[in-house]
């Protein structure tokens, strides 16, 4: 089954780290991605730019509304994702628990709707 691991993290956290800590953090994510690839579970991943760069769009009463900022203005924002393919939820939870973001944020395990 495919799962999207959605990384919800505090955006201010990164800037408060020392350059060494940032380097360490980046290395941890690199290693995690590598482990996923080696296990044959990796389908895709991206780190997202801060939500201050977000724009939200919706159509209300036939008019397109464009707003600056993310959909939900919360302390933790979606900072990236991993798309993985594993046997079941237990395997997905196991990978989610290894994700560095589980240590400084929250990882949501969301099953992907498989087109049949």
């Amino acid at each position: 089954m495919q799962y999207l691991l959605v990384l919800h993290v505090s955006e201010s956290g990164w800037g408060q780290l020392t350059p060494e800590q940032q380097q360490q953090g980046t290395a941890a994510y690199m290693a995690y991605g590598e482990a996923l690839r080696k296990a044959g579970a990796f389908l895709g991943s991206n780190r997202l730019k801060p939500s201050s760069n977000s724009t939200t769009v919706r159509i209300a009463n036939g008019k397109t509304q464009v707003l600056d900022g993310p959909y939900a203005d919360t302390k933790e924002q979606v900072g990236g994702y991993y798309l993985i393919d594993v046997a079941d939820l237990d395997a997905a939870i196991s990978w989610a628990s290894r994700c560095p973001a589980a240590g400084h944020g929250v990882v949501e395990v969301r099953p992907v709707w498989q087109m049949q």
Binding site: L89, D90, V109, P111
Partner: peptide, 14 residues
């Protein structure tokens, strides 16, 4: 069904 919860006996550590 939708979340893929396994029909299995959990790993020893779990």
């Amino acid at each position: 069904q939708q979340a893929g919860i396994p029909f299995a006996i959990p790993e020893r550590e779990e």
